[in-house]
């Protein structure tokens, strides 16, 4: 628990660092006269054309959806992998929350393989459906 309090403190120090830099700069920075052109977003020197919150390519969104699947799956794998070596070496899982559970190494490997092949199958499915095609 102490470690996480330290991390919260670190987060606070980090925010303070950035905030302090921003405030300090606001106090000392040079400020020029406010004109119409000053607030224009950069667009190669011409006057800004239309709004910038436009519709954009759906491809980015699809990648984000596939990412969600794979990232969550890879996070699920971390606890599995944490005990994998322990199971291979001792044949059981020792945890502070329950009795030691005996598992044969080959069983846990088969379970992991099934999980992985479901993942790879998902990738192949997305690939075949054209989700990974950039047009």
């Amino acid at each position: 628990m102490e470690a996480y309090i330290a991390i919260a403190a670190y987060c606070f120090v980090g925010l303070l660092f950035v905030g302090g830099a921003l405030v300090a700069s606001k106090l000392v920075a040079f400020t020029s006269e406010n004109t119409d052109v000053k607030g224009q977003p950069y667009e190669c020197g011409i006057e800004a054309f239309g709004d910038s919150r436009i519709r954009f390519k759906i491809g980015y969104f699809i990648y984000a959806l596939i990412f969600l699947v794979f990232d969550v799956e890879s996070l699920f794998l971390y606890p599995c992998m944490r005990i994998f070596k322990q199971v291979v070496e001792t044949g059981k899982v020792v945890s502070q929350f329950s009795q030691p559970i005996e598992i044969a190494p080959i069983v846990i490997f088969m379970e992991l393989s099934v999980f992985f092949f479901v993942l790879i199958f998902g990738l192949i499915y997305a690939w075949r459906k054209g989700a990974l095609k950039w047009e």
Partner: peptide, 30 residues
């Protein structure tokens, strides 16, 4: 860079515009 002006374009969302630089820097400190 400290002495340079902080420009904000017209139509930019002020809260999010100034919130954005906090996140990457804090995350990398963490």
């Amino acid at each position: 860079l400290v002495f340079k002006e902080m420009l904000r374009p017209k139509g930019a969302d002020p809260f999010i515009f100034y919130l954005a630089p906090f996140l990457p820097a804090t995350a990398s400190f963490l």
